[in-house]
Each structure stands twice: as C-alpha cells, then as structure tokens.
C-alpha cells in the first residue's frame, strides 16, 4: 500500500512537470496532496495516534480542498491567461525531472547514510519533489506557478520529515500548516495587486528594479 501511494506521489509530480496550463497544475497538486493525506491516514490507523489523525485532517482540508479552491478562484477572478508560460517545453522538462529523480536517489544513498534506513526510497522521492518544486519556480513564468512551486516544495519537506524522523513535533507541524496557509493567502493577495497594476501576472516581465 505504502509503495502504491509513493508511486502516486511520483506520478503526480511528473504530471505537474509536464503540465502546460495552470488548472492542470493545480489538479495534479491536489492528487499529490491527496496521496500524502492517504499515507498519513494509514500510519494514523496503524498507530492509533490522535495527533496523526489531526495532521491528516488538516492536510486534507488545507491542501486538498481549500488551497486548490483558492487558487482556482484567483484564476477565474483575474481572468488571466491560463497558459503557464513554459521556458522549457514539456518533453525536455520531463527529461530534467528524470535526471532529478536519479540525482536525489544518489544524494540520499551517499550523503545521508539512508542505506540503513527503511524509508530510503521515501527520502529519495521526497528530495525529488523538492527539486521539482524549485524547477517549476524557475522555469514557469506566471506568478501562480511560483506559488504552486512553493507548495510542492513544502509537500516534499513534509515527506522528508515523515521519512527521517516520523514527522515533526505536533505543534510545530500545526504551526507550519498555519504558516503555509497564511502565506498562500498573502501571495494570492499580491497576485491580485500585480494583475491590477501590470495587467498581467508574468513575473519575467517584472523588471523595473535593477542594479
């Protein structure tokens, strides 16, 4: 079961890397978050810990429901071009992503002594998700894609944390969820402002400040 879910995370990440339009990206983000939710729920069922149930619940409410809903709403309200503005085309992006997958596997093997760790493959996938997030932030041009890239990185970190130490302490986890939610709201607010002032949300064209 665990392996199935991990596979789901991996596939949804590849889907995000090759997505051409913002709604598709948001949909894949939803799949990825749902996989994380399932994984947490299964562990919670096995260990009967209240903390884990709460974390799984928050994950579902925030990352599967609220945040994707909020992002979709922004797209509708600002009537922005739905294209992501790819600097690298999907095929090449997929190649990069495969390269990242290999690299993160090598990284976990060599640097973190993960060979002794049962969750070695989880860790490799988690690092890959973080890499994919950075990749999207750099090579997609709209402000919304950057927000989603950040969220993907955050999902990756959630996986890293659960792979290496069985998750962070409970109240830290809650605080981080709260923090992520607030930051998405604030960034969304700035997307509105950028759209209003510049009449586009292409961050590559934000180049008034130099030197």
């Amino acid at each position: 079961m665990q392996a199935m879910i991990l596979f789901g995370v991996l596939v949804s990440t590849y889907l995000m890397v090759i997505a051409k339009r913002t709604p598709a990206l948001i949909r894949s983000f939803r799949y990825q978050s749902f996989c994380l939710f399932l994984a947490t729920l299964i562990i919670a069922l096995q260990e009967h810990e209240l903390d884990l149930y709460i974390i799984a619940g928050l994950l579902f409410v925030l990352k599967v429901v609220l945040i994707p809903y909020f992002l979709n709403r922004i797209i509708k309200r600002i009537k922005a071009n739905e294209n992501l503005g790819l600097l690298i085309n999907p095929q090449l992006s997929l190649l990069w992503a495969l390269g990242f997958t290999y690299l993160s596997w090598v990284f976990t093997r060599h640097f973190l002594a993960a060979a002794q760790l049962a969750g070695g493959s989880i860790l490799a996938i988690a690092f890959f998700v973080v890499f994919a997030g950075i990749f999207l932030m750099i090579f997609r041009m709209t402000a919304l894609a950057q927000i989603i890239g950040l969220l993907i990185m955050e999902n990756g970190l959630f996986l890293v944390a659960s792979a290496v130490s069985g998750g962070m302490p409970f109240f830290v986890e809650i605080a981080i969820f709260f923090d992520v939610f607030v930051s998405v709201l604030i960034m969304g607010f700035f997307v509105y402002r950028i759209n209003k002032l510049f009449t586009h949300i292409d961050v590559n064209k934000l180049s008034r400040l130099k030197g």
Partner: peptide, 15 residues
C-alpha cells in the same frame, strides 16, 4: 505604497 515598483519588490521579496 502600492506602486508598480513597490509591488514588484514585495513579490520578489516574498518569493
């Protein structure tokens, strides 16, 4: 101040 420059700066800062 909600000018083009300041919003651009805020966006870069936050990201």
């Amino acid at each position: 101040y909600n000018t083009k420059e300041s919003v651009e700066a805020a966006w870069k800062y936050i990201i």
